[in-house]
Structure formats: structure tokens, C-alpha cells
């Protein structure tokens, strides 16, 4: 009987977990991790970078031709830097605020075989950047800072015409859900 009781307790305890549910990726109930960049961190840094970038004189008029440079991930976390870049390029392209060069091999091959004589625009600006991290702790409290750096380089003069840094800092003793 005692064994049965123990088994029942074990089953009860195992059954106490929270079942997986779908969450709004733009909502406020997302997991906040101390040891990695969360999806909402890219969104936060990206949207703030975007606001800063469109306020720069280079983006004040027209749709400048932009080429994406390299974004170096200098953190211990393995992620695709497109997660950050898309937060800038998607709204800019859809609002017709930039002409984004696409160097996709398939698209280039298709253009060559189509016999198109259209001139491919030359890049006016290159967007490059780096993502860094800094970790520290005090007792059981851990702190992770992820530094997002972006620079816009004017191709003609080879000078940086806009640069921005945004830091996302998270502090706590364990991962949590929500803000």
C-alpha cells in the first residue's frame, strides 16, 4: 500500500508541470533568460536601432541603396544575426525607405538567364555591426548585458555616417516569464 501511495505521489508531482502553450511573440509573457539573448531582446534592440537610424540625415529623404555587411556574434550564445537585422530591414523595405541589395545566388542566376539589361544599383551604404556580452554576479544574483552595435558606412567616402549602441541588461537569480 505504501508503495502505491509513493507511486501516486510521484505521478501527481510529475503531472504538476505547465503544459506548452502558444504565446504572442510580441507579448509580455515570454521567457526571460539570463544566459542567452531572447527573441524579445532582438526586437527591443532592433526597434530602438531602427528609430535612431531613420532619424539620421542619411535616411531623411528617398530610399538609399543599402547593402548588408557582416554582423559579428561575439557572445557565447549561438544565434543567427539575421534575428537582429530583420528588425531593421523588414520595416525599412516594406515602408520603401531603403533599396536593399539582394545578393542571393539563385536570384542572380535567374537575372542572368532572363537577359535583363537593367542596371543593378550600387550600394550607397553598408550596414555592419557586432553583438557583445558582459556577465557579472553578486552572490546568487546574476547579470547579463548584451551589447548591440551597428554602424552605417557611406561607401563613396568610406566613413561611418551613423552608429548606435543599445544595451539589454537582465538581472536575477533564475530565468523567468514576463517583463
Amino acid at each position: 500500500m505504501n508503495k502505491l501511495s509513493l507511486l501516486a505521489c510521484a505521478v501527481f508531482i510529475v503531472g504538476c508541470g505547465t503544459p506548452a502553450t502558444y504565446k504572442d511573440p510580441q507579448g509580455r509573457e515570454l521567457v526571460v533568460s539570463l544566459d542567452k539573448v531572447n527573441i524579445q531582446d532582438f526586437a527591443t534592440a532592433g526597434s530602438q536601432m531602427l528609430q535612431s537610424m531613420i532619424s539620421s540625415p542619411s535616411f531623411s529623404k528617398g530610399a538609399p541603396v543599402l547593402q548588408l555587411g557582416s554582423i559579428t556574434n561575439d557572445t557565447a550564445d549561438n544565434f543567427d544575426t539575421a534575428l537582429l537585422l530583420s528588425k531593421l530591414t523588414v520595416p525599412l523595405v516594406n515602408a520603401n525607405r531603403v533599396t536593399l541589395l539582394d545578393n542571393d545566388a539563385t536570384a542572380n542566376a535567374a537575372r542572368a538567364t532572363s537577359g535583363s539589361n537593367a542596371n543593378v544599383p550600387r550600394a550607397e551604404y553598408v550596414l555592419k555591426g557586432k553583438i557583445l556580452e558582459d556577465r557579472s554576479n553578486a552572490g546568487s544574483t546574476r547579470q547579463s548585458s548584451f551589447v548591440f552595435q551597428l554602424t552605417l558606412v557611406e561607401v563613396k567616402r568610406g566613413v561611418a555616417v551613423w552608429t548606435e549602441e543599445k544595451i539589454v541588461t537582465k538581472q536575477g537569480t533564475k530565468n523567468a516569464v514576463g517583463f
Binding site: 510580441q26 524579445q40 526586437a43 527591443t44 526597434s47 528588425k87 520595416p91 517583463f179
Partner: peptide
């Protein structure tokens, strides 16, 4: 016309 897809703390 536009929506910001995230909350800024």
C-alpha cells in the same frame, strides 16, 4: 499604418 512589434522597457 504602422505598429511597433515590441514593448520598450
Amino acid at each position: 499604418t504602422e505598429s511597433q512589434p515590441n514593448w520598450i522597457v
